[in-house]
Every structure is written in C-alpha cells, then in structure tokens.
Design a protein around this nucleic acid. Sequence first.
RNA 1: GCGCGAUUAGCUCAGUGGUAGAGCACAUGCUUCACACGCAUGGGGUCACUGGUUCGAACCCAGUAUCGCGCACCA
Length: 900
Amino acid sequence: MSDEIPKAYDPTAVEEKWFDRWIDRHAFHGDENSDKPAYSIVIPPPNVTGVLHLGHVLNNTIQDILARRSRMQGKEVLWLPGCDHAGIATQTKVERELREKEQKTRRDLGRDAFLERVWAWKEKHGGIIMKQLKKLGCSCDWSRERFTMDEDYSREVQKTFVHFFQSGAIYRGKRMVNWCPVSLTALSDEEVIMKPQNSKLYYMQYQLVEDENEYLEIATTRPETLMGDTAVAVNPNDERYKHLLGKTVWRPFPKAEIPIIADEHIDPEFGTGVLKVTPAHDKADFEIGVRNNLEIIDVFNPDGTLNMHAGEEFEGMDRFKARKVAAEKLDEMGLLLREEDYQNNVGFSERADVPIEPRISMQWFLKYPQVPASTDAVAHRDIKFVPERWAKTYAHWMENIQDWCISRQLWWGHRIPVWYRKEKAEALQNAESLDAGDAGDDLHVSHEPPVDPENWVQDDDVLDTWFSSWLWPFATMDEPTRKKFYPTSDLVTGPDIIFFWVARMIMAGYEFMGKKPFGNVFFTSIIRDKKGRKMSKSLGNSPDPLDLIDKFGADGLRFGLMRIAPVGSDIRFDEQQIEEGRNFANKLWNACRYRQMQGTESRSLRRDPDFSLPEILDQLSIYDLDILAKLDALRSNLDKAYDSYRFSECGQLLYEFFWSQFCDWYLESTKGHFREGAAPTRRETTLAVVDVVVERYLQLLHPFMPHITEELWEKMGFADHGELLMRSELPANPTLEGIDPGVVAKASARAGDVFETTTRLRYLKAEYNLAASKEVGFVVEPENDWISDEVSTLQLLTGAKDIQSGEEFLPTAQTPSLLTPVGKVHMPLEGLIDIDAERQRLAKEIAKAQKELEKVSKRLNDPKFVENAKEEVVAQNKSRREEHRTRLASLEEMLKTLGN
RNA sequence: GCGCGAUUAGCUCAGUGGUAGAGCACAUGCUUCACACGCAUGGGGUCACUGGUUCGAACCCAGUAUCGCGCACCA
C-alpha cells in the first residue's frame, strides 16, 4: 500500500516535487472571501535584483513558520510577496555595467534610454530572489506578487506625494543635506553610517589682519575646505580670545579677510578652541553661518572634486587629494604648525561606501505625519514589538525626528509628480522655497500628468525608495483584500530598518488607513559568522544559502538555522548546525521507515471511529501513555513558545521530543512488540500509538520542515483523499482527552522509573566494558509488584541476556550491584571482577551521595529555611534527604558485601 | 558622552530565587535486523568580577571589566 522508503533521505527531489504540488493545488492562496479568521503578513520586499543571503533565509523561514502554523490552526492566511525597486542600489548596478561594458554614463544615454536599460536589467535579474525563496519552501501567495514600481503602486506613491503637498507637509527648500559624491544624490540621515576613521588633525595658523605679527592657531581635519571659510569662531566666554573678537584674519588662499566671531557652539577644550567656519561644507558651520549671517562659499562640485571657487590650482582636484595639497601648501607658506593622528567619526554613504559630503542643495522634504499616534501605538503596545526593547529605540527616534529628505537625484524611481510651466520653469526650480502656498497656475502637482505636456517641465528628481516602501502593507492590496487582511497580523524584519521602514509604515498606516499597519513586529537577530563578525561579501564569510540547500536540504537549513536563532541577540552561524538539521530530517525519515516496515495492515485509530484511545485504555502500556502524555505536553509547550515568538525553543522542543523521547525511548522500549512471538494485540496497539504520535507530530513539525513532513504524511498514508498536510487542521484537543490524568501520571512515573533503571544498568555495563549485547544477566530485587511486568522491556533496553527476579539471590564478592528506582540490581559476572575498581566505583558514589545529603541536611537544619521557604520546597528537600539516606545505606551495604 | 544588549562546559546556546542543563565537539565501546546523517556510556563549569538584598543568588539590586549594537557628536 505504501511505497518502499529509501534508507537515506534525499531532499532534492522531494522538496521540488512538493513545492510544485502546493502551487498546483493553490495551497498558498489567501482568499479574501473566506469566512475563516484572517492572518496576514506582508513580506519585507527584498531588492528586486538582490540575491538570497542568510538573513533572508532566517527572516522568511520565520514568516513561513507563522503562516503555515496559522493555516493549520484554521485561519485564512495571506502571505503577500514582492520586491522593492531599490532606487540607488539598482541604478548603481546598471550604471556600473554601462561603464564597464560600454564606457558610458547614464547621461550619455539620456533619461529615457537609461530607464529602458534599468527595466531590461530588472527583467533579466529581477525575481531571482523570489525563485530562491520558493526553493526555501516559502508559502507566499505567489499569485499576488507585487513590485513597488507596478503601475497602480506607482500611482499610490504619487497620490501620496500630492496628498502631503496639498496638506503642506511636503515642501521644497535649500538645505544642508547628506550628499553622496558617487551616487550624486542627496541621502536621508538614516542612509548615513558613521564610521571611526584614522585621520589627521592639522594645526595651522591664520594671520591677523590688524597685526601681522599675531596669529590665530586653528585645528582642523579638513584643510581642503578652508577655501570656503568665511569666518573663524571662538567661544564667547573664552578669555584667551576675547580681545580678538571683532577683528579679522587672513584666509591664506584664496586670500581674503574673514571675521573672528563668537559662537556658543565652540568647545574651548577642543584643539585650540578656534574653529574655522565653512558654512557650505559642515552642518554645524552652516548653522553658525546662519546665526551670524555669513557668506556661503561652496568650493566643491557634486562629485566631490573642487571647483573654481577653490582657486585655479585646486579646480577639478579630488577632495582627498586636495586635503594633502592644501596641507602642503599651508606648510610651504609656513602656516602649518603640526599634524596629529586623530580618530574621528565620518559619515559614509550606506550604498556607495564613501564619505558623504554635507552640501547645500534644493531638496524636497516631508514633515512626518501621525507622529503622536505612531509613538503612542508602540508605547501602549497597540503595536507590540518583540523583543520589547526595540520599542525604546523607536521611541527615541520618534522624539528626535527631523524632516525627511525625500528627493533623490536619481532616475530609477518614482518621479516627483510636480510640473513647472515651461516659461516659469527656471524661476520656479530655483525658488528658495516652494510649498502648497505657491501652488498656482504655473505649478501642476498631480498623479496625472498635465494634459498639455509640451507646455510643462517635470521636476527632475525621484522619490526616496522608502517613500514607496512605507505604503507596502496596504498599497499592495486591493479594496476587498484590505477589508479581509488589513491590518496585517505580524511583521517580521530586522531591527536595522526600524527607522527606514517600520516607523514610517506605522505613520503611513495611520495617515491613509486610519489604522495601524500590523499588530506585532518581530525583530530577527543579525547573523554573524563563527568569529562574531557580520556577514559580508567583502569578508567572504557569508555562505550561499543555495549551497547549503544543496548540501543539507531546505528543511535542514530551515530547521538548523531556527534552532540556533535566539530571540533578541545575534546568531553565530555555524554550518555544523545546519548539518544537524539535515541529520534530524534523516532521523525522522528513518523512524517513519521503521514504522512502515512493521506493515500497514493494523487498523489505525484515526480511521476507525470506534477505536478511540479511552476505549482501549486497558490495552495501553505505561510507555504508550507516557509518550502520548509527552506528545500532549509538547503541543502545549509549543503553543507557549510560539506565543512569545521563541522559535529556537520550538525547534528545541520538536527535536528533543522526537529524537530522545520518541525514538530513543518509546520506539526502543516497544521493539519487542514487533518481534516474533509477540502478542498480536500488543503489536496492533503499539502501531496505533505510533501512528497517532507520528501523525500529530508531522503536523507540529510541518511549519519548520514543510517538505519532508508533507512527503511522509503521504507516504505514511495520513493523506485521506489526498488531503495536504499543510492544509490539514491541527486538532485542538489533547490525544489523551477523556483519560484520567491520575492514571496517566502513574504510568508516566513508572515508565520514568524503567528508563532511569535502564540508564543505570547501561552505566554499570559500560563501567565493566560489557558493551557487546546480551552477554550479561541482571538480578533484580524488585521493590514493587508492577515491576515484573516490565522486566522484559528492561531486558530489551539494556541488551541483557536475561533478567531474573532475585529475592533469594545472594550477591558474592564478585557481584557489582546498583541501586535503581525499581530496586537493587546485581550483575553477576562469570569469573573474577576487579574488586578494587568496584570498591572505587562505590566509594565514588558514596562520596557523592554524602555530599548531597550534607547539603540537604544543612538546609533542613536551618530553622530560618523551614520557616521561610515554601512548603513544597521544604517537602521536596525532606524527601530528597530520605532518598539520599536510603541510598547511602544501600551503597555502604554493597561496599561491605564486597568484603576485603 | 548617552542608551540598549551580552558575558553559563572547548563551541553554539537554554536556564526568572530552592540538586547547574541541551546539542555539537571530545573520549571509550558498539557490523543490536529504522537510521554511522546512527546507538550506548563517560569526562568536562568559581555561571566575567566586586559588593549588597535574602534562610538561600547563575537568576534580584548596585558597581567594575570586556565585547557588541544604536544615538549624538569636538572642527
């Protein structure tokens, strides 16, 4: 009836087969017309031209686990996939190719032709990552795949712009922004990464105009900007310089007279306490400039080279070369006093990885909407952050929020939907400021282009990628879908994009939907390598997930990764962990194979309505009840762990139950039922219990290892009428429902005693190097009458030749003995044993028991303990004391028996 | 500078006040008829440090150290 199962599990074919079947059967479809309760997630859209890395694997495995689990809990699940156009990243890639293959820039091609290239690139490379996510088994509703540059999505983005422009939240102005000299665009503050740099502090002196013998000593890290200096500043309270206020110094080159001014911002302790003020090239200097009404001289070109204002010899020179040359020139002029090594923090462009340049330019800004509502939502846990500490980071950012620079001087992206009337275009484009108040006949701000485009000029800039991403939770959905699935249930993402994305989505959700965009946000850990370094391409320490899938299977990768992913801290990645995932898949595979080898003719509990567990209670062994109780415990422990998003704990629970409880103990202790001569009912009952356990276990494991569980579900014959495991419903009731918990507890305790006894006997055998099976017999002095029923199991588990009941047994000096939960056990050996070794072994155990007894006794003798501790703790200690006393007595007796 | 984490076995990590745990690695022994991607057994820890609270602290509090992250920066 069922297929023959191969010895080693081979994931490759199985995984592909099931993914195709799931797609064919529309098993991932989220139905907006369903009556079931909704559960939804939107994928954090990866870059359209990106490739899968381990971070994606972790993130999307978690989402898949949540989605699959919710489906099996009877919810209607929508997991919505898609990609982000990733403005700078994508444009940079295409520009690089253009430069390398054709030695051209985007400007050589022109805007339209260049955009065609990007679209072609997107067609060619786009969606690779989506294919990779499918290989991982992600159960997204692939029929709903979205892209942030889809036509209707773009319209939403433009409408959003228009909405905020009209409300006055969007304005245009000349501001100091972060400028990337490589990408040639403004960046938001969030796209700037501060990095410590080893640089130099140059001490130079400016000559006083009023007294050519007096100099003012200034420290700077950026001599290349001195051509843009329009003042030097000191702290107004700095006694050293008070007499110089109001005087002027010579800027060495281009030579000019600049004032000495006072400003609170200057720290007298730093350097010489004198700051050269370059309003065009430093944010703080710019503010000083504004406060003191200073002239602004921009000495840089957009690409980071110097311009004509820097002087002829510097014109066209790169900024870093200019730094050296300027220092040399100062030195030649006798104005450079010394150089000091100095470590400072420099802002780098996230994408291009070059120092950004503070630059004054015309940009569009957005005053963030819904800040109070968004702050409160997280503070009051209406939106729950997990781990919770990220809520603090969020709150802190929201408190200090600055207007968002949303314009980018790129071509790939959503173009700003602002048109200027042709005749007035130049004037309007250069206007110092522009906002809704300026809207008139000469300005067209709309998601529809003007009807007479020939009379209009569109704004050149595009919008920040995140200005489209922040609409993702609802712009990806049509009305009926929103009605069913918005707000989404969970968001799974990295803490590194709390500001970029999470915070902004919350604001957009309240602004446009009037509701939060998601209920819970789970922040994943960052994956590091074994040495704790961040995974990066340049270090080459980032394993390709596809290689890992080839080697260990998608299920192995998922399971291995999830088991090492703690909540809240970083993951140290180790391929060995993934190997364990694969090994676990193989273990599961072989356990099922073992079950299949016992035949399928037995009736299964799940098929026959009259064959329920309470009905056959008297046929169930203590091991049957024990494993079923543990299965039910697994179920409820999993629920608890899931509730707090402790996925690694879920993985651990699933692993431990199956490998240790089920395979090592239950299957081993019931092997006798499948041997020749075993009672047919025993055999049948055992098979039935195995089936109950395996069936439910496959359901519980499925979210972690979807492919292999689905395969086994079918192979084991659980797929009634071809029902998919992933579409099966997890029964709400425990398997032992209707059975007296007292009976179960007693059975479990007895099974535990048998297992503990087994461990001790195996230990004794190992001590005497008796690993070869069945060469030894045991004699038990049973303490309870139920033990006789379990002797055969004990024999099976310990691999003993036989186990006799030994009331009349008289141990000789050559008989090692043990105290076990079921009574004293002797291991008579033929021939002499090493009495010294045995004595040593016993002495060791006695010492241990004594130590423990002392500890417990000491505690119980302390009246304060007895007085203060909880009753149960005292009772626990008392029984422990008794245990140790008995144990000690027996051990000493054994030692005595050994004689001398 | 401010804030947030972390510090437990060789490694990766569990452990919310009452006997220090798991997996891997290591050692030893196993061609036990599901699995060597396996089975069994074992060795291995001053729970970073110093104080405090408590009858009792890996756990709570304060401080120190080291590492990591975030924010803000002194040119």
